[in-house]
């Protein structure tokens, strides 16, 4: 089957590669572009481990064809830290013990990153509703909520600061 040319922005950098139409975005990110931070969990759009940012919305990259990202702006967990400094969401997960085995963490952080732009000051209930598409097999939800709250506070104080 012929491969198609695919070009998009990944974490602020222009990337291009050749893909078959049937290849999923998650596979191209990990296998063609070497960005293995995004994890493959269930591959059925339930678990959210593969969550990335696509043109400013959270999506599950196991349920999008790579060719659908043509010309798009994609951000993965590799794009969170800037100049060697952790993003407040990453800092929150570290400070509040928001991970145990760490498998769900890239997807959790990418969803939290977008959630806090959609709603910078969420209530606990809003965080739970907004993070409902991400599963943690270690069931460490309590600390994940605290991590998001930490990041919200930090982002708010940076804005005011």
């Amino acid at each position: 089957m012929t491969r198609q040319h695919l070009a998009f922005t990944l974490n602020g950098r222009q990337v291009e590669t050749l893909v078959e139409p049937r290849e999923l975005l998650i596979h191209v990110l990990r296998e063609e572009l070497g960005q293995t931070g995004t994890h493959i969990g269930c591959e059925t759009s339930h678990c959210g481990a593969c969550t990335v940012d696509l043109d400013g919305i959270s999506v599950k990259s196991c349920t999008i064809l790579a060719v659908q990202a043509q010309g798009s702006d994609v951000m993965t967990v590799e794009g969170l830290a800037k100049n060697g400094e952790l993003h407040p969401v990453q800092e929150g997960f570290m400070q509040e013990h928001g991970l145990q085995c760490g498998f769900c963490t890239p997807g959790m952080m990418m969803r939290a990153y977008r959630l806090l732009q959609e709603n910078p000051n969420p209530t606990e209930a809003e965080i739970r509703w907004g993070m409902a598409g991400n599963l943690c097999r270690c069931t460490g939800y309590q600390n994940i909520i605290k991590s998001v709250q930490y990041a919200a506070r930090k982002l708010q104080s940076a804005k005011e600061g």
Partner: peptide, 9 residues
């Protein structure tokens, strides 16, 4: 219906 990421698509 579903969850935030799925509802986005």
């Amino acid at each position: 219906i579903a969850d935030p990421q799925v509802r986005n698509r």
